[in-house]
């Protein structure tokens, strides 16, 4: 039974003295599911409950709409503009302001900024999502193992983390990119991830170290639950908040970092339009037309906003305590 102390269905965990009252209050919502036997079917209904919780919140629908929009733009830019981001450029239009058909005006090369912002989504979102995913996977695994098992696991994994902390991204990118013939979004994301995971590994480790001392973990252990299962079922979900938060902020950071690499000639090929690339390029006009940088930066902000809100909703859904009652 203590197995479900933290279960959204509100399993009847044995509360510690003085806490009875609060446990009852928290778990009101999930009582309906109590009848289920605590067996292997538990995870699916854990997620089902999380889903039920999420879909009841307007924030979820807003963030889902934003993410859907960004994904659509990234997948089908042609639906949103009829121009080409690189070919339909006239130098005579250089830095020209907005006009009918060109709502955002023109950049220094005379390209339509609206079109470039639409086409920039694909590379940026791809790099951002892929590198964030990789960082979260590697970082969370390394960090949780180090934090949960401790001892020499911790020693070895943490020292490896220290080594990776030290390597300058630029240097690593120069070396890796020079031996890579095809610079795809995946490769760029891989390089960014390779040097972005230590931070999230440290954060996961710290949180796991704290969470593993919680009562429900001790309880689960005393019931003979295997350590791996405890880590997966109890510790990680409770340590997920900082991981999700870090990941959503890092998403934006990776999109910007891609641009820095491209700017140095070690990122995506120059033929690829991306928000980060345009942000870099438009910096040069900062004294003459400072407003144009807002468009690619706006695309970036909207994407990060979508994922950030989604992260909040997911986190709340995973955390039974924070549920709306």
């Amino acid at each position: 039974m203590p197995d479900n102390y933290d279960d959204p269905r509100g399993g009847l965990a044995t509360p510690r003295p003085g806490q009875e009252h609060f446990v009852a209050e928290v778990d009101e919502g999930g009582l309906g599911a109590v009848d289920a036997v605590k067996s292997d079917s538990a995870p699916s209904s854990f997620w089902r409950d999380a889903w039920r919780e999420m879909r009841g919140r307007w924030l979820f629908w807003v963030s889902a709409a934003i993410i859907l929009l960004v994904v659509l733009v990234a997948a089908f830019p042609g639906w949103f503009t009829s121009l080409d981001p690189r070919l339909d450029c006239e130098l005579t239009e250089s830095l020209g302001g907005p006009e009918p058909g060109h709502p955002f005006g023109f950049d220094k090369q005379g390209c339509d900024i609206y079109t470039r912002t639409i086409y920039g989504a694909r590379a940026s979102v791809l790099v951002g999502i892929m590198s964030t995913t990789m960082v979260v996977l590697v970082g969370a695994v390394m960090g949780s193992i180090a934090g949960y098992y401790g001892k020499w696991f911790d020693t070895i994994l943490s020292r490896v983390t220290d080594i990776f902390f030290a390597i300058p991204l630029v240097l690593a990118a120069i070396v890796i990119m020079s031996v890579t013939p095809n610079r795809t979004a995946f490769i760029v994301a891989l390089v960014l991830a390779l040097f972005g995971w230590p931070q999230i590994a440290r954060i996961t480790r710290g949180t796991v170290m704290s969470v593993k001392n919680n009562e429900f973990v001790t309880a689960a252990r005393s019931l003979g639950m295997s350590r791996g299962r405890i880590l997966r079922r109890h510790v990680l979900p409770n340590a997920s908040a900082p991981i999700i938060v870090y990941a959503t902020v890092a998403l934006g950071q990776f999109i910007v970092a891609e641009a820095s690499l491209s700017f140095l000639g070690i990122g995506l090929p120059p033929s690829v339009v991306s928000w980060g690339g345009d942000i870099n390029q438009y910096q040069q006009a900062i004294r003459t037309a400072p407003e144009i940088i807002l468009y690619p930066a706006g695309g970036l902000a909207l994407t990060v906003l979508g994922f950030m809100m989604m992260g909040d909703v997911v986190r709340d859904a995973l955390d039974p305590k924070a549920r709306k009652r």
Binding site: Q109, F263, G265
Partner: peptide
């Protein structure tokens, strides 16, 4: 060699 000064004129 890459830096934005060169990218700008090469693009043009």
């Amino acid at each position: 060699n890459a830096d934005s000064d060169h990218q700008t004129w090469v693009d043009a």
